[in-house]
Protein backbone atom coordinates (compact mmCIF):
# COMPACT_ATOMS: atom_id res chain seq x y z
CA UNK A 1 0.00 0.00 0.00
CA UNK A 2 1.22 3.49 -0.78
CA UNK A 3 2.31 5.71 2.10
CA UNK A 4 -0.39 8.28 1.35
CA UNK A 5 -3.07 5.57 1.54
CA UNK A 6 -1.72 4.38 4.89
CA UNK A 7 -1.76 7.96 6.17
CA UNK A 8 -5.38 8.21 5.03
CA UNK A 9 -6.18 5.19 7.21
CA UNK A 10 -4.54 6.93 10.18
CA UNK A 11 -6.52 10.09 9.48
CA UNK A 12 -9.75 8.08 9.39
CA UNK A 13 -8.70 6.50 12.72
CA UNK A 14 -8.87 3.09 11.07
CA UNK A 15 -6.85 0.57 13.09
CA UNK A 16 -6.06 -1.24 9.86
CA UNK A 17 -3.35 1.46 9.55
CA UNK A 18 -1.36 -0.20 12.33
CA UNK A 19 -1.58 -3.63 10.74
CA UNK A 20 -0.42 -2.32 7.38
CA UNK A 21 2.44 -0.35 8.91
CA UNK A 22 3.49 -3.42 10.86
CA UNK A 23 3.44 -5.62 7.73
CA UNK A 24 5.14 -3.10 5.55
CA UNK A 25 7.72 -1.52 7.85
CA UNK A 26 7.80 -3.64 11.03
CA UNK A 27 10.97 -5.56 10.18
CA UNK A 28 12.89 -2.46 9.23
CA UNK A 29 11.83 -0.59 12.35
CA UNK A 30 12.75 -3.60 14.44
CA UNK A 31 16.23 -3.58 12.92
CA UNK A 32 16.75 0.12 13.53
CA UNK A 33 15.86 -0.32 17.18
CA UNK A 34 17.85 -3.52 17.61
CA UNK A 35 20.92 -1.87 16.08
CA UNK A 36 20.76 0.70 18.87
CA UNK A 37 19.55 -1.38 21.81
CA UNK A 38 20.99 -4.81 20.91
CA UNK A 39 18.08 -6.35 22.76
CA UNK A 40 15.24 -8.02 20.88
CA UNK A 41 12.66 -7.52 23.61
CA UNK A 42 13.48 -3.85 24.03
CA UNK A 43 13.42 -3.41 20.25
CA UNK A 44 9.98 -4.98 20.08
CA UNK A 45 8.71 -2.68 22.84
CA UNK A 46 10.13 0.32 20.98
CA UNK A 47 8.36 -0.78 17.79
CA UNK A 48 5.02 -0.97 19.62
CA UNK A 49 5.65 2.42 21.28
CA UNK A 50 6.40 3.82 17.82
CA UNK A 51 3.07 2.61 16.43
CA UNK A 52 1.29 4.22 19.37
CA UNK A 53 3.11 7.51 18.93
CA UNK A 54 2.42 7.49 15.19
CA UNK A 55 -1.27 6.94 16.00
CA UNK A 56 -1.20 9.97 18.29
CA UNK A 57 0.74 12.20 15.92
CA UNK A 58 -1.23 11.50 12.73
CA UNK A 59 -3.15 13.78 12.64
CA UNK A 60 -2.06 16.53 12.88
CA UNK A 61 1.07 15.26 11.07
CA UNK A 62 0.50 13.91 7.57
CA UNK A 63 3.76 12.24 6.47
CA UNK A 64 2.41 11.21 3.06
CA UNK A 65 5.76 11.30 1.29
CA UNK A 66 8.12 10.02 3.94
CA UNK A 67 6.16 7.74 6.24
CA UNK A 68 9.05 5.36 6.86
CA UNK A 69 11.40 8.26 7.66
CA UNK A 70 8.75 9.66 10.01
CA UNK A 71 8.53 6.31 11.81
CA UNK A 72 12.30 5.85 11.76
CA UNK A 73 12.79 9.16 13.55
CA UNK A 74 10.35 8.14 16.26
CA UNK A 75 11.88 4.72 16.83
CA UNK A 76 15.42 6.06 16.78
CA UNK A 77 14.60 8.61 19.48
CA UNK A 78 12.78 6.02 21.60
CA UNK A 79 15.54 3.43 21.28
CA UNK A 80 18.28 5.90 22.06
CA UNK A 81 16.30 7.14 25.01
CA UNK A 82 16.09 3.58 26.35
CA UNK A 83 19.79 3.25 25.78
CA UNK A 84 20.99 6.45 27.40
CA UNK A 85 18.49 7.03 30.19
CA UNK A 86 17.15 3.61 31.04
CA UNK A 87 20.43 1.76 30.50
CA UNK A 88 18.57 -0.86 28.47
CA UNK A 89 21.35 -0.97 25.98
CA UNK A 90 24.10 -3.52 25.64
CA UNK A 91 25.90 -1.26 23.20
CA UNK A 92 26.73 1.49 25.64
CA UNK A 93 30.30 1.66 24.31
CA UNK A 94 29.01 2.01 20.75
CA UNK A 95 26.79 4.96 21.69
CA UNK A 96 29.78 6.53 23.44
CA UNK A 97 31.88 5.98 20.34
CA UNK A 98 29.36 7.72 18.08
CA UNK A 99 28.93 10.53 20.60
CA UNK A 100 32.66 11.01 20.74
CA UNK A 101 32.82 11.26 16.96
CA UNK A 102 30.00 13.79 16.82
CA UNK A 103 31.58 15.85 19.56
CA UNK A 104 34.24 16.74 17.03
CA UNK A 105 31.57 18.69 15.10
CA UNK A 106 30.54 20.94 17.97
CA UNK A 107 31.86 24.50 17.54
CA UNK A 108 34.36 25.40 20.24
CA UNK A 109 32.32 28.41 21.36
CA UNK A 110 29.51 26.12 22.53
CA UNK A 111 30.18 24.95 26.04
CA UNK A 112 29.22 21.56 27.43
CA UNK A 113 26.67 23.19 29.74
CA UNK A 114 25.01 25.18 26.99
CA UNK A 115 21.56 23.92 26.02
CA UNK A 116 20.74 23.90 22.35
CA UNK A 117 17.27 23.64 20.89
CA UNK A 118 17.27 20.29 19.15
CA UNK A 119 14.96 21.12 16.27
CA UNK A 120 16.81 24.32 15.32
CA UNK A 121 20.12 22.50 15.47
CA UNK A 122 18.83 19.63 13.35
CA UNK A 123 17.59 22.10 10.76
CA UNK A 124 21.06 23.55 10.35
CA UNK A 125 22.60 20.08 10.12
CA UNK A 126 19.96 19.08 7.55
CA UNK A 127 20.81 22.16 5.50
CA UNK A 128 24.47 21.20 5.59
CA UNK A 129 23.65 17.64 4.54
CA UNK A 130 21.32 18.65 1.72
CA UNK A 131 24.17 20.67 0.23
CA UNK A 132 26.43 17.60 0.15
CA UNK A 133 26.81 15.16 -2.75
CA UNK A 134 24.35 12.25 -2.47
CA UNK A 135 26.91 9.63 -1.53
CA UNK A 136 28.57 11.64 1.21
CA UNK A 137 25.23 12.68 2.67
CA UNK A 138 23.94 9.12 2.76
CA UNK A 139 27.09 7.77 4.38
CA UNK A 140 26.86 10.43 7.11
CA UNK A 141 23.17 9.80 7.80
CA UNK A 142 23.64 6.03 7.89
CA UNK A 143 26.38 6.44 10.44
CA UNK A 144 24.85 9.06 12.73
CA UNK A 145 21.11 8.66 12.22
CA UNK A 146 20.77 4.92 11.51
CA UNK A 147 23.87 4.29 13.66
CA UNK A 148 25.29 1.68 11.32
CA UNK A 149 28.68 0.12 11.73
CA UNK A 150 31.25 1.50 9.24
CA UNK A 151 31.77 -1.96 7.77
CA UNK A 152 28.04 -2.20 6.96
CA UNK A 153 28.13 1.21 5.28
CA UNK A 154 31.27 0.22 3.39
CA UNK A 155 29.53 -2.94 2.21
CA UNK A 156 26.43 -1.05 1.12
CA UNK A 157 28.36 1.40 -1.05
CA UNK A 158 31.16 -0.83 -2.24
CA UNK A 159 33.83 1.16 -0.35
CA UNK A 160 36.62 -0.04 1.85
CA UNK A 161 36.12 0.45 5.58
CA UNK A 162 39.00 2.93 5.58
CA UNK A 163 37.39 5.04 2.89
CA UNK A 164 34.20 5.32 4.93
CA UNK A 165 36.13 6.35 8.05
CA UNK A 166 38.09 8.96 6.11
CA UNK A 167 34.95 10.30 4.45
CA UNK A 168 33.22 10.66 7.83
CA UNK A 169 36.22 12.29 9.41
CA UNK A 170 36.33 14.95 6.66
CA UNK A 171 32.60 15.53 6.90
CA UNK A 172 32.78 16.07 10.64
CA UNK A 173 35.38 18.79 10.10
CA UNK A 174 33.28 20.37 7.36
CA UNK A 175 30.18 20.28 9.55
CA UNK A 176 32.04 21.92 12.40
CA UNK A 177 33.19 24.76 10.21
CA UNK A 178 29.66 25.07 8.73
CA UNK A 179 28.15 25.30 12.22
CA UNK A 180 30.69 27.93 13.20
CA UNK A 181 29.80 30.04 10.18
CA UNK A 182 26.05 29.59 10.63
CA UNK A 183 26.11 30.95 14.17
CA UNK A 184 22.72 29.41 14.90
CA UNK A 185 22.75 30.18 18.60
Amino acid sequence: MRDSEIVDLFLRRDEEALRVVSDQYGTRLNHISFRITQDEQTAEECVNDTYLEAWNRIPPSEPREYLLAFLSKIIRAKSLNRCIYEHRCKRHAYVEELSSELEQCIPSKISVEEEIEGKAFAEVVSRFLLAQPDEKRRVFVRRYFYMENTSVIAAAYGFSDNKVRTMLSRMRKELKSFLEKEDFL
Binding site: K73, L102, G118, V125, S126, L129, Y144
Partner: peptide
Protein backbone atom coordinates in the same frame (compact mmCIF):
# COMPACT_ATOMS: atom_id res chain seq x y z
CA UNK B 1 24.16 15.88 19.33
CA UNK B 2 23.57 12.20 18.71
CA UNK B 3 20.08 12.59 20.19
CA UNK B 4 19.36 15.68 18.14
CA UNK B 5 20.04 13.77 14.96
CA UNK B 6 16.59 12.21 15.48
CA UNK B 7 15.18 15.57 14.35
CA UNK B 8 16.90 15.50 10.95
CA UNK B 9 14.90 16.43 7.90
Amino acid sequence: MLEMMSELD
